[in-house]
Amino acid sequence: MTDTAILHIPEQDKPLNKKQKEFNILSDTIEALDRQIADLQQAYDEMLRRIPSDLDPLVREYQGYRADIVNLWDRTYEAEHFRKAYQTKLAFLITENAYDLIKNHALSDLKPVFNKYSPVDIDVLLEEERLREVSRIKDPAFLLESAYEPEPEVSFHELSEEEQQRIKAERREQRMDQRTREAQQAKTTKSVRSVYMELVKTFHPDRETDEAEKLRKTETMQRITKAYQANNLLDLLKLQMELEQTDRNGLENLNKNQLSYYNKILKQQVEELDQQKTAIQQKISAICGLPWQHANSQVTVIAKFNTNINELKAEIKNIKKVYKHWLVPSQLKAYLKPFQIPNQPEDDSDE
């Protein structure tokens, strides 16, 4: 965390002017962002640490029960209790669930089951999907429109023309935002270098003859170099103030040009920290499903992660009951009776 206490103008005999107030607001904002980013990073690290021990085993257990149900449906399909309408529904459920478990959860033992009910071999389907993905990635139009975007869940070229145009418009806007952020980053880096070079000119110890002063400048240069390597504008700004012999009590005497310069540097730091905050929020969202705009504290993030774990435990408990329930053919039939295959007319021929 960056110590920003020195970057605050105290209000004494007269009220602060607009630039002085802006200086304090920016300083406070940086301090708050710095704390929040550190807090969110701790939350992210804690989730990564807990996933192998707390989440992954539950996911494997749940998907294992799904596989057990697919195998139950497979055995039931051959039973005398079920006529054609129910068998059609079972075949649909078997192929839909088996495909997901094979493709997304590496349960390849279900391939023979899938192939019993699908006119196309599972390996052929998986290879076709892989080729579509390769073709989509190599498409120049796709590359042009999605330079900075994550892959969509559905192949771009399988979408309607209207949906394709909507996605392209979103990507153009997001690409422009990315370029703006890159320009801001370049601007920030330039400011860091500018402040750094000015400090080096003053504090470089090589030409200093006085040993005590040389030692002081050597220590100062170590601080300057550390801040520069970390791209830390705030620490460099503090050192800039030291160069100008500006302490906390003297900040109120900064002239208009000095304040404008410092406010410009602080604004750039706020922009950079905002980008860092958004980046960690989006990484958190990808893990626990919390909307990234709501990932504002370690407490909130870990609470959501714990909720996900508890919900998965409840789902495991429920799917175990469902499996046991469906071991009785009449109860499975009661589930299948109202079940409707998507985009297919209801068949009441068994009634």
Rank of each mutant, 00 (worst) to 15 (best):
T2E: 12
A5K: 14
I6R: 14
L7A: 05
L7T: 06
E11P: 06
K14D: 11
L16V: 02
I25W: 00
I25H: 05
S27E: 01
E31Q: 14
Q36E: 13
Q41I: 10
Q42G: 06
L48F: 06
I51Y: 00
D54E: 14
L55K: 12
P57E: 09
L58N: 12
E61Q: 14
Y62K: 12
Q63N: 14
R66F: 06
A67Q: 07
N71T: 12
W73F: 15
T76W: 04
F82K: 07
L93G: 05
L101E: 00
K103L: 01
S108N: 09
D109R: 09
P112R: 05
V113Q: 06
F114H: 13
F114W: 03
D123Y: 02
D123L: 04
L126E: 13
E128M: 10
R132F: 05
E133Y: 07
E133T: 10
P140G: 00
L144T: 15
S146N: 15
Y148R: 05
E149H: 06
E149F: 05
E153M: 10
H157I: 11
E158F: 08
E162D: 13
E163V: 10
E170R: 12
R171N: 12
Q174W: 08
M176Q: 13
E182G: 04
A183V: 14
A186C: 11
R193F: 08
Y196L: 04
Y196G: 07
L199I: 03
L199F: 02
D206I: 09
E208K: 01
T209H: 07
T209P: 03
T209K: 14
K217R: 15
Q222I: 07
A230E: 14
L233E: 11
L236F: 04
L243V: 08
R248I: 09
N249K: 13
E252G: 11
N253G: 09
N255C: 06
L259Y: 08
Y262F: 12
Y262L: 10
K264D: 15
L266D: 07
V270E: 04
A279F: 11
A279Y: 14
Q281G: 02
K283Y: 04
S285N: 06
S285C: 04
I287S: 02
C288A: 00
G289S: 03
G289Y: 01
L290C: 01
L290K: 00
P291Q: 01
A295V: 01
N296G: 14
T307D: 00
I309R: 03
N310R: 12
A314L: 14
E315K: 13
I316M: 06
I316W: 05
N318G: 06
V322R: 10
V322E: 11
W326F: 00
L327D: 11
L327H: 10
Q331F: 12
Q331K: 10
K337C: 05
K337G: 06
Q344T: 15
P345S: 04
D348K: 11
E351A: 09
